[in-house]
Amino acid sequence: LGHGSGGRLSAELITEVLVPALGAAAPGGPLEDAAVVTAAGSELVLSTDAYVVDPLFFPGGDIGALAVHGTVNDLAMRAAMPVALTLAYVVEEGLPIADLRRVAASVGAAAVAAGVPVVTGDTKVVGRGAADRLFVITAGLGQRLPGAAPTAAGARPGDEVLLSGPIGCHGVTVLSTREGLGFEADVSSDTRPLHRLVAALVGAGGPDVHALRDLTRGGLASALNEIAAASAVGVEIEESALPVPEPVRAACEILGLDPAYVANEGCLVAFVAPAAAGAVLEAMRSRPEGAAAVRIGVVTDSGPVLVRTTVGSRRVLDMLLGEQLPRIC
């Protein structure tokens, strides 16, 4: 197994191994990070995620904050506001109690800041080697905002693609901190909850907000490819419009990374009908987490996801294996 970096291999693992194994219990329709379920006549949104990160603590956040934000954001991408979270820890024997305390405090602070209670949980301590220090699993229950039903399959040709903020910060921070590369002095993780941003943009765009996706592993490129595949459309974005902070750009150059493939934890892309795009963009910019929101491109009828470069050529922005192995011969 080498399926960790959120590229095509993870996607294949899910579609070819995990979903088929569910048999009749498998979800229908496009795969989403959160699902709408109807119980007793009312629509609820449900999501779950497991968090693994090395290091546990990094500039701008830690595994606890990631676990809260990740699940809140997955709910938000279905236009749902978080109602309650559940929490489970898998702790490797030998983890300093101070570290666990610090993570737990971070979970608490993040939940309070997001305005969502943690209503139940579980803790398991496993032997050395059975886990890597600490895994955090969260599930979230959300309630749908009225008037919008964004889905991964909802993007339509002509939609404008809006990006909520600068990309690449989280991935560079975590990699640099883990490996001691020094870039973490100039950049920190963007981890944060996006549900209030979603409330603002859904308020402005309503049903014209066709699809939302938070950028996580695999970065902007994977998010765009996932939406394009689920919606059977193409996407064309402008390289010059992509907000890449200078330290991220410098780090990516040395690391040989394309910022479009680097992980994020606090950005989203919105696919919005052109008539509403201006209002939605303005609403996004009214929120601090969307202050730097920009229009990065448009949805096309078909074809690959591609980026118009600063010299005017159009490069394919494909879903990669995950490791960005050289394709040059």
């Binding site: 590369l181 040989g256 960005q324």
Partner: peptide
């Protein structure tokens, strides 16, 4: 010098160095 140091570190740590 900074690029050299970072590249050396990447090589030693096996970061992005297939």
């Amino acid at each position: 010098a900074a690029e050299h140091a970072t590249i050396r570190r990447m090589i030693e740590r096996g970061v992005r160095s297939p």
